[in-house]
Simulated assay, not measured.
Amino acid sequence: MSKRLIIKTVLICIGLFLITDSALFAYIFTKYPINTEKKISVVVATTDIKEGVVIEEHFLRKKEVYASGVSANVETEISNVAGKRAINDIHKNDFIRTYELLDKKEWYKDDERIIVLPVSMEDRLANLIKKGSYVDVRLQKETGDTTEDILYKIQVKDVLDDAGIALDSKSAVNSKIAYLKLVLGKEDREKIYAASRNGKLIYELYCDSTQKSGGEVN
């Protein structure tokens, strides 16, 4: 056998060995990952959860992730999340974090109460004021065209029809008068009651929740 043929045979054998070896290692690494980092189960959202919504158990699921990708604020137990209120919007598949949740005992202050204020379509700014909107409440005095600031950046908890049904519900009736549902402390309620005796309440709508309050000093 010539020397050239021997060299070719050896090179072919080495090449086949390297190919087989690479394929074997690739299979082993795919089948048996060498990453031994610890995994933990965390709570994630199964759907988009809006700010203010009380989180139900079926909104949640567990997901295994590497421990290095999880901060101490991420919830690991569904029981710690269900029944709490979302402080901000939570998107589908997002981790649920402790600081995004409000416990039931912290939802309302002791002096807070629900009040409803009747409004016409005009007062609702052509129905632009909806559940979750933020408004400034102003007084339009009967004695003139001047207005007076009463409350700043109050969230509208809901907008109801004559039957007390939310206007965004399919069962709501088409009424000209609606009712703004507000949750106010005693001091703010007294301001509303006093103002309503001296004129008409009007509302200025914020473009979104990120805008500064009308009462904030720049």
Rank of each mutant, 00 (worst) to 15 (best):
E112Q: 15
V159P: 02
N174A: 13
G132N: 01
E106C: 04
L180T: 04
K131R: 15
V137I: 15
D158I: 07
S171M: 10
L151G: 02
D149V: 04
S171T: 11
K141S: 11
D123K: 08
M121V: 15
S120Q: 13
K105C: 00
E106S: 14
D103W: 05
L139D: 07
D111H: 03
I129L: 07
P118M: 13
R113P: 00
G164Q: 07
Y134H: 14
G132L: 04
N127S: 15
R97P: 00
V119N: 05
V119E: 06
T143H: 09
N174C: 01
F95R: 06
D111V: 01
Q155P: 01
R138K: 15
Q155T: 03
K131H: 10
D111Y: 03
D136A: 12
V173P: 01
N174W: 07
W107M: 05
L125T: 03
Y134C: 06
L102P: 01
V156N: 03
V116R: 12
V116Q: 13
L101P: 03
L167D: 05
E142K: 14
K104E: 15
T143S: 14
D161A: 06
V119R: 04
R124E: 09
L117N: 08
L117W: 12
Y134V: 05
A126G: 04
D162Y: 13
K130H: 05
D145I: 09
I150F: 06
I154V: 15
E106P: 00
K131Y: 02
L101F: 08
K109F: 06
A126D: 14
D103H: 10
A163V: 03
D168W: 04
D136H: 11
L101E: 08
Y99N: 13
D94V: 00
D111A: 02
G164I: 01
V116I: 15
V183L: 11
D110K: 15
Y179A: 03
K176H: 06
D103C: 04
K130Q: 13
L125W: 08
A178P: 00
D110H: 10
K157V: 10
E100K: 10
K105I: 09
T146Q: 12
K131I: 03
I150W: 05
Q155G: 00
E142M: 09
V135H: 04
T146A: 14
A166L: 04
V159L: 03
G132D: 01
R124M: 14
D136K: 10
L139S: 07
R97N: 13
L101D: 04
E112C: 03
L151A: 05
Y152D: 07
I115D: 02
W107N: 04
S169Q: 09
E112A: 04
R97K: 14
E100T: 06
K104G: 00
N127T: 10
S120R: 11
G144E: 08
A126W: 03
Y152P: 00
K153Q: 11
A163W: 10
K153N: 07
D158R: 09
P118G: 10
D111Q: 02
G164L: 09
L160G: 02
L180A: 04
K109R: 13
R138F: 08
E112N: 05
K131G: 11
A126N: 13
S120I: 12
D94E: 14
R113Q: 12
L117A: 05
W107V: 02
N174E: 14
Y99A: 03
R124C: 07
R113M: 08
P118Y: 12
K181Y: 02
